[in-house]
C-alpha cells in the first residue's frame, strides 16, 4: 500500500500518494476546511449520459466531473472530496501540478459550493488585494509587479474565499506563480528561477513564498483599456460582483453543477464585505511598474 502524504490545498487537508512540490506539507497545528484525497485509479474515458460533454471536461448527472487532459491525466472528481487520477504525466511535473491546483481545484470547489474567484491575490499590510479578470488580462503579471514593490504573494489565478466568517478570508494558494517571458524579462527574473510549465509553451512558473490565509481588503476587477492611462472606478453594491463571468472561476461550470444559487449568495455577501473597484489599464509591458504603483497608491484610500 502506498504511503499517503498530507498537503495544504487552499486550506483543505489533501492526501496524496505523490509528492506535490507546489503545496506545502500539512501542519498538524492547522485547522482544515475539510479533507480531500487523491487516489490513483483507472478512470473511465467517459461518463454515461453526461449533462456536459466538452473536449476536456464532462459533467455527470450526479455532479461528478471527468477531466481528460493530455499533459496531466484523466481525473474523476466526486463530492468535492475524492480525486481519482490516471496520470498521463508525472504527478510531480509542473504541468500536472498546475492542472491539479487550477482547473481541477476550481471544479472541486464548485462541487463543494465554495466561492472560487478567477483572481490572483497579493497581501499588502495584512489585507489581500484580489486581482480578478478575464484570461490574459494580466492578473499574474500585475501580482508579480506588486510583489516587486513589497506586496506578498497569496494566490495565483484562483482564489478560494471563505464567506462564512465575519470577514471574507482568502485561502493561501500553491506557492507558485505562472508568468510569460515578457513579464519575466521586464521584472528581471533570472532564467534559472524559471521552471517551464510544459514543453511547447513558453509560460513558466516561479517559486513564491508560502502564504497564510488573509482577510480580503479590496476586490479589483481588472480590464484592459484601449487608452493609455490607468483608471479606477469605485463599484457599489452588486455592481461590484456583476457580471460574474469574469469574476467567478469556471463560472459556466458552476452553473452546470447546479451551483448558481449558493454562488450568487456568496457573491452578494462578498459585495457587502469587500470594497471593489474597476481598474482599467493599458496592455503596455513597459508601463507595468507604473501601473502597479498607481494601484498601490490607490489602495491607500481603502486601508
Amino acid at each position: 500500500m502506498q504511503e499517503m502524504r498530507q498537503f495544504n490545498f487552499y486550506g483543505y487537508r489533501l492526501s496524496s500518494p505523490w509528492g506535490l512540490s507546489w503545496l506545502s506539507p500539512w501542519q498538524e497545528s492547522e485547522i482544515a476546511s475539510g479533507e480531500m484525497a487523491i487516489l490513483e485509479a483507472e478512470v473511465p474515458e467517459s461518463l454515461p449520459d453526461p449533462v456536459e460533454r466538452g473536449p476536456f471536461i464532462q459533467i455527470g448527472r450526479e455532479g461528478e466531473v471527468l477531466l481528460d487532459m493530455k499533459h496531466a491525466g484523466r481525473f474523476l472528481l466526486r463530492n468535492g472530496r475524492e480525486i481519482l487520477v490516471s496520470p498521463f504525466e508525472s504527478p510531480e511535473s509542473e504541468a500536472f501540478q498546475s492542472f491539479l491546483t487550477g482547473t481541477v481545484a476550481g471544479l472541486l470547489f464548485h462541487q463543494k459550493s465554495r466561492l472560487a474567484l478567477h483572481a490572483s491575490a497579493v497581501v499588502v499590510r495584512g489585507r489581500a488585494i484580489l486581482l480578478s479578470g478575464w484570461a490574459t488580462v494580466g492578473k499574474s503579471a500585475l501580482a508579480a509587479a506588486l510583489m516587486e514593490q513589497g506586496a506578498e504573494f497569496l494566490s495565483d489565478d484562483l482564489c478560494l474565499v471563505d464567506m462564512s466568517r465575519e470577514e471574507a478570508i482568502v485561502s493561501a494558494g500553491p506557492s507558485r506563480i505562472r508568468l510569460w517571458p515578457d513579464v519575466g524579462d521586464y521584472l528581471g527574473f533570472p532564467e534559472e528561477a524559471r521552471y517551464p510549465l510544459r514543453s511547447g509553451l513558453r509560460k513558466f512558473t516561479l517559486v513564491t513564498q508560502t502564504a497564510s490565509p488573509v482577510r480580503a481588503g479590496l476586490l479589483v476587477r481588472a480590464e484592459d483599456a484601449h487608452h493609455r492611462s490607468v483608471q479606477f472606478v469605485h463599484l457599489r453594491g452588486m455592481h461590484s460582483v456583476m457580471p460574474p463571468h469574469s469574476l467567478v472561476y469556471q463560472h459556466r461550470f458552476a452553473g452546470l453543477l447546479q451551483r448558481q444559487k449558493p454562488m450568487l449568495t456568496a457573491l452578494s455577501t462578498l459585495a457587502g464585505k469587500v470594497p471593489a473597484i474597476r481598474m482599467e489599464f493599458p496592455r503596455q509591458m513597459q508601463q507595468l511598474r507604473e501601473i502597479a504603483s498607481s494601484l498601490l497608491q490607490h489602495v491607500e484610500t481603502y486601508w
Binding site: S98, G102, T103, R198, G200, Q250
Partner: peptide, 11 residues
C-alpha cells in the same frame, strides 16, 4: 469560458 480549462496552458 466554454471548456473550463486554463486556455493559456494549451498548445
Amino acid at each position: 469560458e466554454q471548456f473550463g480549462v486554463e486556455a493559456t496552458e494549451l498548445t
